[in-house]
Lab assay of single mutants.
Amino acid sequence: MDVFMKGLSKAKEGVVAAAEKTKQGVAEAAGKTKEGVLYVGSKTKEGVVHGVATVAEKTKEQVTNVGGAVVTGVTAVAQKTVEGAGSIAAATGFVKKDQLGKNEEGAPQEGILEDMPVDPDNEAYEMPSEEGYQDYEPEA
């Protein structure tokens, strides 16, 4: 019985440690998101679009440190934060509304985080759909 109880105690310690790591990862992701939003706020009209992409990228980098179902929630929060940063930029006159959601080359930025393969159960990952990809044929 002692062996059984000791095993359960060790398992509990492992769960607590994993929860603490997840909590730490979420806190880091939130900190990076805040950094990115402050970065966007300090940019001029020309830099705002690039700044919004930076927020998304920093958040995406930190999301990889967070495991399990938390990833889905962090990704949703990050996307809403990026959308909010863009709205703030438009409201303050840093950028025109028609410039939001495009990178410096004018290509749409939507789907940055949505296409990231995420499995809350950590069982399997699927690649994003290939609808947006084109076949590449090298020139002879």
Rank of each mutant, 00 (worst) to 15 (best):
N65V: 09
G106M: 05
T81F: 13
T75L: 14
M127L: 15
E126V: 06
G68T: 12
T92A: 14
P108R: 11
A89V: 14
F94L: 08
A56V: 11
A76N: 12
K58A: 10
K45W: 15
Q109D: 14
A53I: 10
G68Q: 02
A85R: 09
G101H: 04
K58T: 13
N122P: 05
P128S: 08
K21W: 10
V95S: 06
V74N: 02
Q62W: 04
K43Y: 10
N65F: 08
N103T: 15
G84I: 15
D121T: 07
E105N: 06
Q134S: 11
G86A: 08
Q109M: 03
D2M: 05
Y136E: 03
D98K: 09
G132V: 12
E105C: 02
I88N: 02
K23A: 04
Q62C: 14
F94K: 03
V15W: 04
G101K: 15
H50K: 11
E46A: 13
A76G: 08
A91P: 05
A107R: 05
V49H: 09
L8P: 00
Y125A: 02
K60T: 06
V95I: 10
V55D: 00
K32N: 06
A89Q: 08
G84A: 15
K102P: 10
I88K: 05
N103A: 04
E57V: 08
H50G: 06
N103Q: 08
Q24P: 00
S129P: 12
Q24E: 07
G68D: 12
E137K: 06
V74D: 15
E137R: 15
E20Q: 05
N122S: 08
D119S: 03
V3C: 02
D115V: 12
D119H: 15
V77D: 02
T59E: 00
E139R: 13
G36A: 15
A29C: 10
T92D: 03
A107V: 03
T22L: 05
Q79H: 15
A85P: 04
Y136K: 14
Q109G: 03
G31Q: 09
V118S: 12
A124H: 07
S9D: 02
V26H: 00
D121A: 14
A56G: 15
E137Q: 05
P117H: 06
S42F: 09
A91V: 11
E83R: 13
M1H: 00
V95M: 07
E28S: 11
E20T: 07
F94R: 01
F4V: 01
E126Y: 02
A85I: 11
K34Q: 01
E28D: 04
A85G: 10
G31D: 07
K102C: 13
G67R: 14
P120I: 10
K34T: 02
V82S: 04
K6Q: 02
P108K: 07
V15C: 05
N65D: 05
V3T: 00
G101P: 03
A56L: 13
Q79P: 02
Y136I: 12
E104Y: 12
G84R: 14
L8R: 00
E123I: 03
V3F: 02
E13M: 06
